[in-house]
Amino acid sequence: MQSDRSDSSGPITQRVHSLTTAATGDTRGKHRIQAELKRLEQETRFLEEELEQLDKMEKASAACKE
């Protein structure tokens, strides 16, 4: 299952934009933005791995027939 990642109006992009706007000129804000981005990237990787595992699983109805 592939998603269209070119959509720049997604919730992650909106969150990063709001963080960037709130932290303009603040070095602590820059660190918070980088930490939030890292957390979001880790969550994205985790969810992508979970989706891959789900794609490899049998359908529930096939397992119930057995």
Rank of each mutant, 00 (worst) to 15 (best):
S6I: 05
R5W: 02
D4K: 06
R45S: 01
Q14L: 13
D26C: 10
L54I: 04
A22M: 08
E52P: 01
K56Y: 04
T24E: 07
Q42C: 13
L37M: 14
G29D: 00
K56F: 03
P11L: 08
S8V: 12
R5V: 03
G25F: 00
K30W: 00
I33F: 02
T24C: 05
E50V: 08
T21Y: 12
D26G: 03
H31R: 10
G10T: 10
A22S: 12
Q53M: 04
R15T: 05
E48N: 02
G25P: 00
E48H: 03
T27R: 06
D4S: 05
A35Y: 11
S8D: 07
K38L: 09
T21Q: 11
L54D: 04
T24S: 13
C64W: 07
A35T: 06
E41D: 12
Q2R: 03
S18L: 06
D7I: 14
H17M: 05
E41W: 00
Q14D: 11
S8M: 14
E49S: 13
L47G: 01
L19M: 13
M57R: 15
K59C: 09
L19T: 02
L47T: 03
S6K: 07
E49L: 12
T21F: 13
K59S: 11
E41G: 06
K56I: 00
H31W: 05
E48L: 02
T27S: 11
R39I: 07
K59R: 14
K38I: 13
K59Y: 04
Q34I: 04
L47R: 14
E41A: 13
M57D: 09
E36P: 00
E49A: 12
E43L: 12
M1S: 10
E58A: 13
D26H: 07
R32P: 00
R5L: 09
R32S: 07
K38D: 12
E43P: 00
E50W: 09
S9K: 07
G25L: 02
A63Q: 14
K38N: 14
E50I: 07
A63W: 12
T21C: 03
A35W: 07
T27N: 07
S61I: 10
R32H: 05
R28L: 05
K56Q: 15
I33K: 11
